[in-house]
Amino acid sequence: MSTTLPWGRRYLMCPPRHFGVLYEINPWMRTEVTVDSDTAFAQWERLVDALQAAGAQVEIMPSQPGLPDLVFTANAGIVDATPDGSGRPGRFVPSHFRHPERQPETAVDIDWFARRGWKIERLPDQLDHEGAGDALPFTPEGGRTVLVSGYSFRSDAAAATALSQLLGIPVRLVQLVDPRLYHLDLTFCPLDGRRAIVAPSGWDRYGRKVIEALVPEPLVLTEEEALSFCANSVVVGRTVVMPATPVRVGRQLEAWGFEVVECRVDEFLKAGGGCRCLTLALDVRLSPEPAGER
């Protein structure tokens, strides 16, 4: 049994009071498709319950009219909860959204974190990066945390350099090539210090090699499995909360000792988001901990 993920016990979520498909910025969105608000709300609450049942805490950010995608908190930014001795909860690097439709979310996200004492660190203005949607940490057993950052559809490759300098950690870039898998978190889900769910069909050949070198035991999804959004799962210790569970994938996870909890979020899939997209882990520690903190 491998060590569990060192993060994933505290999440920020936003209720879908103002959620809907009001514009089209990815191939899944169709404005003519209506979202059933009650169903969406019920699915979202079930996800909250599932995460809490798995042992995670959930914090709530109020929804805002006119910002339907605020519900996808994974895209708010990048969180680093490494203690820095200042007494602050950590650092928050807010996203720079590529699409103007989502850009107003940033002010709301900054406000939420700033009010709670997080140190806000900004990327250079001209660089796009969509937060934890395009950047997930992987901490190899006995190794140093690496931030894996996807680019092309929503984030700039050059933002990785800026992130690395800002956060002081290595960042590995993976180019995303399938517009249906437009964020990294649709193709990559770290499970523990050895394993991750990976969807190489979403990456170019260099990106595949980068992940191959990083993850010793990948659970490799077929293209079809990847398009079920099963990589867009939330891992809480040994529990994996998934929007869909292809049989083969579920069996493999169980064989590795994970408990699989399927949590349908179909209303959100209409906007191209699954379980992971609806959550932002608040307990990610990216920096090597200062001596004495261990």
């Binding site: 050059a158 350099t161 690395s164 290595p170 960042v171 590995r172 180019q175 260099y206 090699k209 980068v210």
Partner: peptide, 13 residues
């Protein structure tokens, strides 16, 4: 080009 251009295989790419 700057960054982790070797680990990310960016330079060969």
């Amino acid at each position: 080009v700057t960054g982790h251009i070797l680990d990310s295989l960016l330079l060969p790419k």
